[in-house]
Design a protein around this nucleic acid. Structure first.
Length: 600
RNA sequence: UGGGGUGUCGCCAAGUUGGUAAGGCACAAGGUUUUGAUCCUUGCAUUCGUUGGUUCGAGUCCAGCCACCCCAGCCA
């Protein structure tokens, strides 16, 4: 576990621009400035942890990671990296009922795809169950924890309310012997769920409800995905997390704002444990004297408009079939974004742009879109694909010759010559997009209409001579003529304003294109005053287009490869549903469209 | 008259020990352009929730007020 390979970004298929962790923040962007980095700088200056910075990313494996987790991942790994520190991956698996190995595997894959490597082996809170048990015994012996036999309902009543203090449990003064006996037997599986719990003895009158003798162990007769049936009791988050941090010698324990009120408890537990024992149980290679307890620091979680970010809601969307899975391209999950065509570099850049603070905010979806456009503009090869085909016949173009079609060469990128060129046959029969023709052109329209000229991208200028319509009056074919002198040169004496994309009819390949849009039609789906968030699901969030016509060079595209379909947007080959016989493309994001603003 | 937090441009977000408001997104106007894309240039907070106070000087210090968020799981 050298520091050099701890943070290097991977180079997965569409992680195209940045192949090393250094580029995470963007090459020209100044080092991010935020209050957490300031705290760490200060600690470094005062030598608080002997110059050590150790963070951790601690997901509970009860769902898939979403872009909010990416913010935390970038923070934890980023802050460690820029201070020559390390970041652990720890599964906070203290509630086996909701957790599974499937989620563990998915989380690992997502973090790796995002481009981060954790320090050493993967950690599990469940791997500390033995130590956690011993520490509980230590608290009991010190008279700082007791077995409470109140039912959950009774316990709630004793706890008091936000505005009234609590009442001590009648079991609060059990002897150490009795507590040890009971707790031992809890661990031996002698009791049913709910009949006993282990509580920290703190202060039932505390204004902070978390300090009113919080439960630290509960009885749960359930199988654990890591420890099997070994334990009938499981530690609570508040108890396990701080000790896990301490055991891993975490210096800065970064979490979200809702844990603010838990910090006094985090500190209480660690401060009431024997520091020497704690040190012995830890990863520490230093002496007890230089062993410093971790500090919890909270930051605001990520919110983005037009989507939801809570695991509970995302899970509901999956379970109730509103989307096709955790990795549905409309989901804000990392696997969904990946499948949609977002690169990991774009997500890292997005997180940097958003920043870290303590004020709860809602980031505009436009920021995310900008991040992916920014990346793909530089890295995605260009291609042409006609989404809604309208046939064009060039009446003055020669019929197919025996020598085969005329073949044009187009650049794969307007600026990056290194991306090379692609071949594209030109022919008498073509397809253009239906939206690029208007019989009665609106003001400022620069595309094709009867009698006007337009440039076919990378090819000739054509003029529309005649419109063939179906029974309903809808154009089904355009008879046009081409100007043979305009290949690579502008016509003389007149200016052709519009440029439209096209594909040759006979050589184009039929593909399916999935047009994705925001999942919700309301900016804040969480707004309870308007009703359930599921009621504002955007019915147009997925529109599947079949019979789209793509240029033949796309035939070779690999799963997850991203392209810019010129004048349309960025699209990627669906990593699961696309086959060489029937290709499927996902629209990642549109191009910016100033025409849409003018025309509306 | 419970506790803990947060309020700087439409959206994020920097703002060292008080010295006279970074940057990004969005938006607008020009320029380049065989993508109405990209790129380039320019514009975009006399003002920091609010009211007072301290000070030669306050977003930064003090006091009051207002708004919003979190907490009463044997979830995390």
């Amino acid at each position: 576990m050298k520091s050099s390979d701890t943070f290097s970004a991977n180079s997965s298929a569409n992680n195209s621009t940045n192949h090393n962790g250094d580029a995470v923040a963007g090459s020209t962007a100044p080092a991010p400035s935020n209050f957490i980095r300031h705290i760490i700088e200060q600690d470094l200056q005062t030598g608080k942890h002997n110059g050590r910075v150790q963070t951790r990313f601690p997901p509970e494996p009860n769902g898939y990671l979403h872009i909010g987790h990416a913010k935390s991942i970038c923070l934890n790994f980023g802050v460690a990296k820029s201070n020559n520190g390390f970041c652990n991956l720890r599964f906070d698996d203290t509630n086996p009922e909701k957790e599974s190995q499937e989620f563990i595997n998915a989380i690992k894959a997502d973090i790796e795809w995002l481009g981060f490597h954790w320090s050493g082996e993967i950690r599990y809170a469940s791997a500390y169950f033995d130590a956690l048990y011993e520490f509980a015994l230590q608290l009991i012996r010190a008279g700082k924890a007791y077995v409470c036999s109140l039912s959950p309902d009774q316990a709630r009543e004793y706890r008091g309310t936000l505005t009234t203090h609590g009442t001590p449990s009648p079991y609060r003064n059990r002897t150490v012997e009795e507590n040890i006996d009971l707790f031992t037997r809890m661990a031996a599986g002698e009791f049913a769920e709910g009949v006993h719990s282990l509580r920290a003895k703190i202060d039932m009158a505390s204004p902070n409800i978390n300090m009113r003798d919080p439960v630290i162990y509960r009885i749960r007769h359930v199988h654990h995905h890591q420890t099997g049936d070994k334990w009938p009791i499981y530690p609570m988050y508040d108890y396990a997390h701080c000790i896990s941090d301490a055991m891993e010698c975490i210096t800065h324990s970064l979490c979200t704002l809702e844990f603010e009120d838990h910090r006094p408890l985090y500190d209480w537990i660690l401060q009431n444990l024997d520091i020497a024992t704690l040190h012995r149980a830890s990863d520490s290679k230093e002496g007890v004297e230089s062993y410093v307890l971790p500090r919890q620091i909270e930051f605001a979680r990520l919110n983005i408009n037009y989507t939801v970010m809570s695991k509970r809601k995302l899970k509901e969307l999956v379970m109730q079939g509103y989307v096709k899975g955790w990795d549905d391209p409309r989901m804000p999950t990392l696997s969904g974004l990946r499948r949609r065509g977002f690169t990991s570099a774009s997500i890292r850049n997005f997180c940097d742009r958003v920043g870290i603070s303590r004020s709860e905010s809602v980031v505009d979806l436009g920021m995310l879109e900008h991040s992916i456009r920014d990346d793909l503009d530089k890295s995605a090869p260009r291609a042409m694909c006609v989404l809604r085909p309208l046939k064009v016949t060039l009446t003055n173009y020669p019929l197919d010759s025996l020598d085969g079609p005329e073949v044009l060469e187009l650049s794969c990128h307007p600026k990056e010559e290194s991306m090379g060129k692609r071949k594209l046959p030109f022919a008498r029969e073509l397809f253009i997009d239906a939206s690029d023709f208007e019989e009665i052109p609106p003001p400022q329209y620069k595309r094709l209409s009867p009698g006007t000229e337009v440039r076919l991208r990378g090819a000739y200028v054509i003029r529309c001579d005649q419109v063939i319509k179906d029974a309903e009056g809808k154009p089904v074919e355009l008879l046009c003529s081409y100007d043979a002198a305009t290949l690579g040169v502008n016509p003389q004496g007149r200016k052709v304003q519009g440029v439209i994309h096209w594909v040759p009819a006979q050589h184009a390949i039929d593909v399916e294109v999935r047009i994705y849009d925001r999942l919700f039609s309301k900016e804040n789906p969480d707004d309870k005053t308007v009703g359930d968030y599921k009621e504002c699901l955007n019915p147009e969030s997925l529109v599947t287009l079949t019979g789209c016509k793509a240029e033949p060079s796309l035939k070779l595209a690999a799963p997850e490869a991203s392209f810019q379909f010129e004048r349309e947007g960025y699209f990627c080959v669906d990593r699961y549903d696309s086959t060489p016989e029937k290709m499927v493309f996902n629209r990642t994001v549109t191009l910016r469209d100033s025409w849409a603003k003018i025309s509306s």
